[in-house]
């Protein structure tokens, strides 16, 4: 019987699991420990629902509703001096919760503080663009769409950014295998030579340790050159890399170690 492999998360799994092992947690502390963060949180709480808030590794994490994302970031930017959006992206929780988590990493240069705003959306749900507030979200949201398929509303140019326009699938989803699917495997062959060339070019070699010493298609054989695809399992011709005649060619001298002179005195 084949072992069951889950289809909703095809990423690499640890082969060793310990039933009794309890993963430790990175320490979280209450927001009230830090006066600056507490004031920021109060400002958010005054207008919006805050689902969760804590400080982890010196940064405040605030979990909000997904439809508040624009308003909360606007508040942080205009009133709380978080003038830069350093990073935003999504995390795929489809396998466990059926949701994407979206995080916005904000930076306040005046206060030297960093805040992470997080929210969750369903798989088919769209999220509001924050491109009007931070121009950099233009590209980040495109990247998020490209990698996860999270659609962003009110975005000026919702197209793929890293992958080609005609790509199929969203690479960073957990259902997408690391080495790509069938479409990815033949992408360049289909595009350049056409589907009919698949048989001639052959499948990709994804085994990094594979070496075939009789392979005359993939390896240049300097000194033993044969035409492309020749069978050499019965021995190969010796074609030394030398000039066509042994005595050298016109104006090119062979280096002779016997005749070489080491010049010790440069003013000789």
């Amino acid at each position: 019987m084949r072992a069951y492999t889950p289809k909703d998360n095809v990423q690499k799994k640890s082969y060793y699991t310990d039933r009794f092992w309890v993963a430790p947690q990175v320490a979280k502390s209450a927001v009230s420990d830090d006066a600056v963060f507490a004031a920021d949180l109060d400002a958010i709480k005054a207008k919006f629902d805050v689902l969760d808030a804590y400080i982890q590794v010196d940064q405040m994490v605030v979990v909000i509703h997904a439809n508040d994302n624009y308003a909360v970031l606007e508040l942080l930017k205009n009133e709380r001096e978080y003038t830069q959006l350093s990073e935003m992206s999504a995390i795929d929780w489809l396998a466990t919760e059926g949701k994407f988590e979206i995080f916005y990493q904000m930076l306040s240069m005046a206060k030297r503080k960093r805040v992470r705003i997080k929210c969750k959306i369903d798989e088919k749900e769209a999220i509001q663009s924050v491109e009007k507030l931070f121009r950099c979200a233009d590209w980040s949201e495109r990247e998020m769409y490209d990698m996860f398929g999270v659609v962003v509303n009110n975005h000026p140019f919702m197209k793929r950014i890293l992958m080609p326009d005609d790509w199929e699938g969203f690479p960073l989803r957990k259902t997408y295998p690391l080495q790509g699917d069938e479409f990815a495997a033949w992408y360049e062959v289909d595009k350049i030579f056409g589907k009919e060339a698949r048989e001639i070019i052959g499948p990709e070699n994804r085994d990094p340790a594979r070496i075939d010493r009789y392979d005359t298609k993939r390896f240049a054989r300097l000194g033993h050159e044969v035409p492309f695809g020749t069978d050499i399992s019965q021995g190969e011709p010796d074609t030394p890399l030398v000039y066509q005649e042994q005595k050298g060619v016109f104006m090119v001298d062979k280096f002779d170690t016997q005749k070489s002179v080491v010049i010790s005195d440069r003013h000789r």
């Binding site: 640890s14 993963a23 430790p24 947690q25 990175v26 982890q56 350093s86 995080f103």
Partner: peptide, 25 residues
């Protein structure tokens, strides 16, 4: 441990950040 972290450093080009979300694996 389970948790997440965003660490910025000043690389020659600018702010180089690593966001890691660990689930204890």
């Amino acid at each position: 441990p389970v948790g997440e972290v965003y660490v910025p450093t000043e690389s020659p080009k600018g702010e180089l950040g690593f966001y890691i979300n660990s689930q204890g694996g």
